[in-house]
Computed example of a mutant assay.
Amino acid sequence: MKFTAMLIAAGLALVAPAAAQETRSFIDDAGRVVEIPVNPERIVALQDIFFTVPLIELGIHPIGSHGRAGDDGQPFLRSSKMLTGVDFDNTDIAFMGTGTEIDPETVAAVQPDLIILSTNQDPQLFAEIAPTILLDFRRLDNFELYDRLAELTGTTASLELLKVRYGEQIAQLTRLGDPSGTSINVIAAVNGQVRSYARFAALGKVLHDAGFAQPDAVADVEYGQYSEFSPEMLPEMDADIIFVTYRAEFGETPADAFAQLEETVPNFCNFLVACQQGRMIAIPRDETFATSYGALGTLAYAVLAASTAANAISYSTN
Rank of each mutant, 00 (worst) to 15 (best):
F3E: 04
M6G: 12
A10K: 13
G11T: 01
L12R: 10
L12E: 14
Q21E: 14
T23F: 05
R24V: 08
S25N: 12
F26T: 06
G31N: 11
V34A: 07
V34I: 11
V38E: 15
P40H: 08
V44L: 05
L46M: 12
V53N: 07
V53W: 11
L58C: 04
G59Y: 10
G59L: 07
H61G: 04
R68N: 12
A69R: 15
G70L: 00
G73S: 12
F76W: 13
K81R: 15
G85P: 03
N90G: 09
A94P: 01
M96Q: 06
G97C: 04
T98V: 13
T100L: 10
E101A: 15
I102D: 05
T106R: 08
P112M: 08
D113I: 10
L117V: 10
L117T: 13
Q121W: 11
I129L: 14
T132N: 03
L134I: 02
D136R: 04
F137S: 05
R138Y: 09
D141M: 02
N142V: 00
E144N: 07
L145G: 00
Y146G: 01
D147N: 07
L149Q: 01
A150T: 04
G154I: 01
T155Y: 02
V164M: 06
V164N: 07
V164A: 13
G177E: 04
I184L: 01
I184H: 00
A188T: 01
A189E: 03
N191D: 12
Y197F: 15
R199S: 12
F200L: 03
A202C: 09
A202M: 06
L207G: 09
G211K: 09
F212L: 02
F212C: 02
A213N: 08
A213Y: 06
A213H: 11
P215I: 00
V221N: 14
E222A: 09
E222Y: 08
E228S: 15
F229Q: 06
S230E: 14
E232G: 03
E232T: 10
L234I: 03
E236W: 08
I242R: 02
F243V: 01
V244Y: 04
T245P: 08
Y246G: 00
R247E: 12
A248F: 06
V265N: 02
N267G: 07
N270I: 02
F271N: 05
F271S: 08
L272S: 00
L272A: 02
V273D: 06
A274P: 00
I283Q: 04
R285S: 08
D286R: 07
T288G: 13
T288Y: 14
S292E: 09
S292F: 09
L296M: 11
T298F: 10
A300C: 10
Y301V: 12
A302D: 14
A302M: 13
A302N: 11
L304G: 03
A309Y: 15
A309K: 15
A310Q: 13
N311C: 03
N311S: 14
S316L: 10
S316T: 05
T317F: 08
N318S: 11
